[in-house]
């Protein structure tokens, strides 16, 4: 990556940042149209830069397709005034990123991302959002807080990371999921992805896995202990408690 490319990349990020800034919900006159123009310019610029300067000519069309979907959806996550739509756009981001992972040959990571995020975590988010506000939007939904500083911080960070992208180690390209000649898939290389992930998790990173597991277990037990409440039974006479101890009914187990 030449110096010119890097500066062009910074310019593209500036355009994208301006787009997001204008797209963010604000009080008073909406500047969505200006934001859309800047945003489209940023995305087109980024794709052009990627296609001509950074990525090789053999980069798949699907990479650009899913990358664009991911960027646009991610912008909508931040800028959409309705929280339910934001959560659904987040689902779209997760699915698009999973598709990018599949293109990289990381099938296991892709499906794990979908099962864990799209299938479980985001459903719980949606659950909470829907319970919190079913209709209409609150002040904090259509008026963003410190939009300028947020955009500057976010995009400077992204530009800083992307500007050093050429220093990253190059990963060898592997076969993605495709309609392949399955008579040849009995070779070990074809079955290697999930097996390789599993082997690494069970050998090199086994301590990390165990620690993460224990941490999750502890947090689950903690959540249950905190949310457990004695359900008052109908007809049962309970002594009224002094005011200071009203919330102390919860016994851990």
């Amino acid at each position: 990556m030449t110096a010119t490319t890097t500066y062009l990349l910074y310019l593209v990020f500036a355009l994208g940042g301006a787009g997001v800034y204008f797209l963010l919900p604000r009080a008073g006159r909406s500047m969505g149209r200006a934001g859309a123009i800047f945003g489209v310019a940023g995305v087109v610029g980024l794709i052009t830069l990627l296609a001509t300067q950074i990525a090789g000519p053999d980069t798949s069309f699907y990479f650009y397709l899913f990358a664009t979907i991911a960027i646009v959806a991610a912008t909508r996550v931040v800028t959409h005034p309705k929280p339910v739509y934001s959560a659904l756009y987040f689902v779209l981001v997760v699915v698009a990123v999973a598709a990018l992972l599949v293109l990289q040959g990381a099938e296991f990571a892709a499906v794990a991302l979908i099962i864990v995020y799209a299938g479980a975590i985001l459903v719980t988010y949606l659950f909470v959002i829907m319970l919190a506000k079913q209709r209409g939007s609150a002040v904090y939904d259509h008026r963003s807080r410190e939009p300028f500083m947020a955009v500057v911080a976010g995009f400077v960070l992204m530009a800083a990371v992307a500007g050093r992208a050429s220093d990253l180690p190059v990963v060898e390209k592997t076969e993605a999921i495709s309609v392949q000649d399955t008579t040849q898939t009995e070779s070990p290389a074809a079955a290697s992805n999930s097996m390789a992930v599993g082997t690494l998790l069970m050998t090199k990173y086994v301590v990390a896995i165990e620690i993460a597991g224990v941490l999750l277990l502890v947090s689950m037990v903690g959540a249950i202990a905190m949310s457990r409440k004695k359900v008052p039974v109908e007809g049962m006479v309970t002594k009224p408690k002094p005011l200071g101890q009203a919330g102390r009914e919860v016994a851990p187990f």
Binding site: I114, G119, T185
Partner: peptide
Amino acid sequence: TNPDIGLLYILGVGSMGVYGVVIGAW
């Protein structure tokens, strides 16, 4: 298609199945 992760693929698709119901309900 016979992906390496066929089983997880079906599990993932199944876990997305709740969205239709939830979005429709909301």
